[in-house]
Structure formats: C-alpha cells, structure tokens
C-alpha cells in the first residue's frame, strides 16, 4: 500500500500534477519569514499554472 502511495506521489510529481502544492510549500518555507516579502502573497492557482506552463515551454524542451 505504501509502495503504491509512493508511486502515485512520484507520478503526480513527474507530471506536474502537484506543482502548485509544491509551490505553496516552497513559499511557506522560504518567503513567510522574510519581512520584505510580506506584501507579496503567493500566486493564485490559475496564475501559477499559467506562469508554470509558459515557463515550461520557453527554450529547448524536446529533442529528436
């Protein structure tokens, strides 16, 4: 059961299904304690997803 759960977590991470959750976690860890960032709230899911997709497709991302 635990193996399946781990595998599922990997699949989600690989596909980017949990990208927003990881972003929020990163935000909580790195920005909350930082006073200069207090005014900056984390991006909404829509805004984050848009930016994430656009970034993912700038530059060489696929090969022959």
């Amino acid at each position: 059961m635990k193996i399946l759960k781990n595998l599922w977590a990997r699949v989600r991470q690989l596909s980017g299904d949990d990208a927003y959750e990881r972003y929020l976690q990163h935000y909580a860890e790195h920005h909350q304690s930082c006073p200069k960032d207090e005014a900056e709230l984390p991006l909404s899911k829509e805004a984050f997803f848009k930016e994430w997709q656009d970034k993912k497709w700038t530059g060489v991302k696929r090969c022959c």
Partner: peptide, 22 residues
C-alpha cells in the same frame, strides 16, 4: 521554486528521459 528546484533524482531522470527521447 520555479526553474531552479532541488528535485528527487528519479523525477529528474524522468524529465530528462522524456525530453531526450523523441
């Protein structure tokens, strides 16, 4: 948290392989 992200090695392997194998 966006383009520079420390990532599990299997995930990096997956991304890398998906990108190189066309």
């Amino acid at each position: 948290g966006r383009d520079f992200i420390p990532t599990n090695k299997w995930i990096v392997f997956g991304h890398h392989f998906a990108a190189i194998a066309g």
